[in-house]
Amino acid sequence: MKRHLLMGLALLMLAGSAVAAAFDYGLKARRVADGVYAFIGHTEDFDTVNGGNIANAAFIVAPGGVIVVDSGSSLRYGQQMRAAIAAVTDKPVALVINTHHHPDHFLGNQAFAGVPIGALAETRQAIAAEGDAFAENLFRMSGDWMKGTELQQPTRTLAAGPLEIAGRRLRLLAFDGHTGADLVVVDEASGVVIAGDLVFHGRAPTTPHANVAHWLAALDRLEALTRELGFKVLLPGHGEPSTSAAPIRETRAWLVWLVDAMRQAARDGLDMNEVLARPLPPEFASLPLAASEYRRSVGHLFPAAEQDVLEGRAQ
């Protein structure tokens, strides 16, 4: 048993280093609707095998150029993404949009220096404040895949509302909840909703900057979007695209359970180690990264639930 595990581990490490040696993310643009393509990341955590290719990015081929939504986690990712876009269209990149300030969504910006890079005002502030620390962390977790990566901040402030760019009409929606500012991009022509990390699909959501009540409110509004006439495809920040609101419901179910579990644990007087030791309910146990995201979320969310109980705000 032990020998098998060790051998398996050694083989897998060899396989991993062979992939890593080329630092090739293997990015292939997947067509999700007319003129809209996505790069679907692994539903994993950062490591030295996936090199940080764990989030989705997208691009829209507009009449006058390409609109890029999120740029991945490293300079190499951004560069390889640019090359993969060039394999689809020879149009220039007109605009890069960062949906929110998490490093797996904007650290490829550097490959697009010279192109306008847009984000919500709060996202720009958060990238300015935390971007370097995020990059440092990713160097530790993804290793040499990050080589040469430096923070390229957004250069343009976006706001909610219609945005006509390169001859394509986008609708920008500004929410918060996953982070302090979460941008959703609706491509009117194709009916694609690029939801950023407000929606996770087939992967447990991450909560380091979450306000769960706000997040749930945003999900309700996103679900209403999917009932609009023109809706075709929902692209989550992590996981497979969907033609239905199922990933929204999946994300909501996880968050509702999570905050309720924290509240209940605090009411029951549990210590944080006891909360960490609780088993996942069967409906979430096989969700990729459920166990590790649960552990992280206990750290992010339990202290506030506990404080509510100790200060008598929760009954």
Binding site: S73, H102, A129, A133, P208
Partner: peptide, 12 residues
Amino acid sequence: TVGGGCTAPSAA
């Protein structure tokens, strides 16, 4: 102890 991209404690 590990840092985490998404799990880094926020300076803010």
